[in-house]
Amino acid sequence: MTINPENKLQFSSTHRLQWEEAQQKDVILYPEGMVELNQSSAEILKLCDGTRNVAELVIDLEQKFQTSGLEQDIRNFLEIALQNGWIQQS
């Protein structure tokens, strides 16, 4: 499974992304499990709302953090996210 550059990315409907006050972290929740996210991973996932493909996501993130050269890191993380079922492509 790899990411198709054309497809829009969407956070999984069977997982939940949530800010945890006690941990001061975003986490992914799913049946009987939890993954703690660092800030950049959480920011990527929050933009997976079904309106952007990978390239669009990179543009928006680089703009948000006023930086460039994020593409490879973002792609790598999205592949992991896809393999874990955290995101879907449509």
């Binding site: 945890e20 006690a22 941990q23 986490v27 929740l29 009987e32 499990g33 939890m34």
Partner: peptide, 8 residues
């Protein structure tokens, strides 16, 4: 309130 997040 203490931080429990998974509930069975």
């Amino acid at each position: 309130k203490m931080g429990a997040v998974q509930l069975g």
